[in-house]
Amino acid sequence: MIDRTTCYENLEEPQKRGRATEAIVRAAFVVRDIPVLVPTDDTEPYDLVVEVGGRFHRIQCETAYRKSEGTVAFETVSARQRRDTYDRRGSDDRAEYFAVYDPVNDNRYLIPLAEAASETVVIRFREPKNGRSGGSNRAEDYLLDERLADLRHPSSVDTGSDVR
């Protein structure tokens, strides 16, 4: 049987991996009884809008990849096809969160844009043998269920915004 990572690697086009990630992330919200709104076309700077804690939050979906032993990473710059070329753009506050699917560990992460690096975010899921994590984000701090608990109680976190 082919594992998740191999399935993703077999999707050679970035758009196919992106669509798969968006479907997995969307399903993760739906099974948690969270309403999900999807833009009607691919020109919006976010992939989904979710309603949590009485507020709307714009979400940019990204796929993590194996970075090094015990880490995965994702790019905060998206590539969108424009005619015969690709347009690479950063999120630039056009979304409040990155929802990241990690096919290596089958995890879903929710990372506030304010806590994301400018180009690449590294997430550590296993402590290194030398004991130094070197500025990597710890996976358990960004697991979807943990972050959703924060969003359900807006007084404890105020990183989302109302979408009008």
Rank of each mutant, 00 (worst) to 15 (best):
D3Y: 04
R4A: 06
T5N: 08
L11T: 10
L11N: 11
L11Q: 15
E12S: 12
P14F: 07
P14T: 04
R17D: 04
R19G: 05
A20G: 01
A20C: 06
I24Y: 00
V25R: 03
V25F: 01
V25E: 02
R26S: 05
A27S: 08
A28E: 12
F29V: 09
V31G: 13
R32W: 02
R32H: 08
D33N: 14
P35L: 04
V36L: 00
T40A: 07
D41N: 08
D41M: 02
D41E: 12
D42V: 04
D42A: 03
D42W: 04
D42P: 03
P45K: 15
Y46R: 05
D47H: 10
V50R: 02
V50C: 03
V52H: 11
G54S: 00
F56N: 12
F56H: 07
H57S: 14
R58N: 10
R58W: 12
I59P: 03
I59F: 09
C61I: 03
E62Y: 10
T63Q: 00
A64T: 07
R66M: 02
K67W: 13
E69C: 10
E69T: 13
G70K: 05
T71E: 10
F74M: 06
T76C: 10
T76F: 10
S78T: 15
A79D: 09
R80D: 14
R80L: 07
Q81C: 08
Q81W: 08
Y86L: 00
D87L: 12
R89N: 15
S91N: 11
A95P: 00
E96T: 05
F98G: 07
F98Y: 09
D102A: 00
D102S: 01
N105K: 06
D106S: 05
N107F: 13
N107M: 14
Y109L: 09
L113A: 12
A114N: 06
A116E: 02
A116Y: 09
T120N: 01
V121H: 09
V122S: 10
I123H: 02
F125C: 05
R126D: 01
R126P: 11
E127Q: 09
P128V: 05
N130C: 12
G131F: 07
G131R: 09
S136N: 04
R138P: 01
R138N: 15
R138W: 14
R138D: 05
A139W: 00
A139D: 02
E140T: 08
L143N: 10
L144P: 06
D145L: 02
E146L: 03
R147W: 09
A149Q: 15
D150K: 12
L151K: 03
R152N: 10
S156N: 14
T159M: 13
T159F: 13
G160M: 06
D162Q: 15
D162M: 15
V163G: 01
R164V: 12
R164F: 14
